[in-house]
Design a protein around this nucleic acid. Structure first.
Lengths: 332, 332
DNA sequence: TATTCACTCGCAAACGTTTGCCACCCCGCG
DNA sequence: CGCGGGGTGGCAAACGTTTGCGAGTGAATA
């Protein structure tokens, strides 16, 4: 690859000046500028971001560390982040940790070596001190990170769950089951709490067995729903994420349970998949892409120094998106 | 951030030696090594990949340029690529061009500045010379790139379409419609060609109107199917990609057309979404993640110089994945 | 004519690594 | 005693930029 010096030599000029015409960083006479530009063209010169980064101590690159990418939710998140960063001249390096703590540390190390300007951490499991004293801005996405003194942007999980459950209650349902995530992940517990609060608000006792833990996958939702159909026979199910909801839909369809006539189902997150299944899955959430963009904006703000001050918590309010999978309780 | 010199100063040793203990690149006495390691620990030193890359003229990073990310297909592809690269010590910088040629050039420029070691180009539109004289290895994914003298890894689109159509024909269907992509994208034409070849093999004339162009989106499939239902009333539909297929499923469901009893539907690509819809969508394809890994492997081979020689075409054979959306033609 | 600018441009020192080359010490051998 | 050589470790030159400092032109001004 051609370098600044090559261009300078070809143009018969010092490479300092070449640098200045490249960056418009000081006036250069027209003839010289033209010669330089011709040389650049001729050599197909592309400046080295590596050298530039070394000098500038900045890479215009951020890292995005995802815990597991099986959930389409993260794909949409990544899109929002990538878009915002691209628009602002930043690159993003994407790493899937696959729920593996060792892998996560490995990637973090890699990113630090690459001298990323900031890190976006999406809903990781127990981080156990991995992200304690990072030398770069960090914003945590989607998860509450009480231990970390970093910015957090996420949705109000508890409120969203309340909203979803309240939607079902408002439709007349009372036998409302809840399928939630693993008991050791915080988000799952918050959503379950929202469910229980809504039930309590309506004076509905949550019978043991109505709330079942699963794993945030479609298959988990499928199995959990099968179990519920055989026991508590709910008239509505709040699935603590959309993948679970999709699994519920399938379990119902296979048994000939008609949705929403005989069973209402609502999910959480409002991933695009909701619109593709039939019946389309009602859900609560906010534009995931916007969430990603917001997180990216926050991080970029920290990097530029524009955003200063103590850690912020940006929690966005969820909205109800009623689709085809929820309807009023049929009169018995 | 601490530098090599800081570590050296703290350890009371030259920074040359520090470098050597870091990389195990020449024997270092035990006491010195211990002192260095202690200093590294104490300063939380992380070597600068930027400086390293500048010296080594390599970044251990590849670029992944996607045309549009609305299709979940690309998310899966990215996952496979990211996995393979991660395992081999490479990072991936992901760029979504959103079907915008200017954006695509912008990203390419950015990636070149970042001095990526290789580029993975997924199924872009007409590239019109943008990728002509790249100074780095390039492998094109998913699309046949006749103009480019680069490696290509893709699936046999024509054969896959033949397989899908043949599956329907084997089930007794004759009134088989085909919904395909935009006429100006090569992949769409190849798939349409496979459809027609299969029809011809069975002596079925393709009546005008049986093949309709769409846009590879769920919505496009929905509209096209609606159109078909009102006119040719096929007993089976081959959708040239899974998103189209999902749209067909919805159009059928809304009209009370039962799949597969009254209508068989088959897609192409075998994205994960196929398994989530009900009825699960039959499809043809090969593990998308593996396709991605394969492409990444090819690129990494070119980068390391292990793979030399003329451009290769790796085309993988598609397989039929029969699910719930296809069944034998009901006897009238 | 001497001084002061405005306008252009070049020199060279960073940025943080890797690595070829060389220097030193000490031991064993002739 | 002289010398070779293994075992250690330091010097300094790259890698390709950015940028502070300064130098050289003319022309305008005093």
């Amino acid at each position: 690859m051609a370098t600044l010096k090559d261009v300078a030599a070809l143009a018969g000029i010092s490479y300092t000046t070449v640098s200045h015409v490249l960056n418009n960083t000081r006036p250069v006479s027209e003839p010289v500028r033209r010669k330089v530009e011709a040389a650049i063209e001729q050599l197909a010169y592309v400046p080295s971001g590596v050298a530039r980064s070394l000098k500038a101590r900045a890479t215009a690159t951020i890292g995005l560390l995802l815990p597991n990418s099986i959930n389409p939710y993260f794909a949409e998140l990544a899109r929002g982040i990538g878009d915002h960063c691209g628009r602002n001249g930043y690159c993003v390096i994407l790493c899937n940790a696959d729920d593996d703590a060792a892998k996560q540390r490995h990637y973090l190390r890699m990113l630090l070596e690459k001298r990323i300007d900031g890190l976006l951490l999406a809903s990781a499991g127990p981080s156990q001190g991995t992200f304690d004293a990072l030398p770069i801005p960090l914003v945590v996405l989607d998860r509450e990170a009480p231990a970390l003194a970093s910015d957090v942007v996420c949705i109000d999980h508890e409120q969203g769950a309340w909203l979803a459950t309240q939607h079902l209650l408002g439709l007349g349902h009372r036998r409302i089951a809840c399928i939630t995530g693993p008991a050791n992940v915080n988000v799952a517990n918050l959503r379950a709490a929202g469910y229980r609060r809504a039930m309590a608000d309506y004076g509905c006792a949550v019978v043991p067995g109505w709330q079942v833990n699963s794993d945030f996958t479609s298959d988990g939702g499928y199995r959990a729903a099968g179990h519920l159909f055989g026991s508590v026979q709910p008239s509505a199910i709040f699935a603590a994420n959309d993948m679970l909801g999709v699994g519920v839909l399938r379990a119902a369809a296979e048994r000939g349970i008609r949705v929403p006539q005989q069973l209402s189902v609502i999910g959480f997150d409002d991933i695009e998949l909701c619109r593709y299944v039939y019946p389309a899955l009602s859900s609560v959430g906010q534009s995931i892409r916007q969430l990603g963009e917001r997180a990216a904006a926050q991080l970029l703000g920290r990097i530029s120094g524009e955003q200063a001050g103590p850690p912020q918590r940006l929690v966005v309010a969820p909205a109800l998106i009623a689709r085809e999978s929820t309807a009023a309780l049929a009169q018995p």
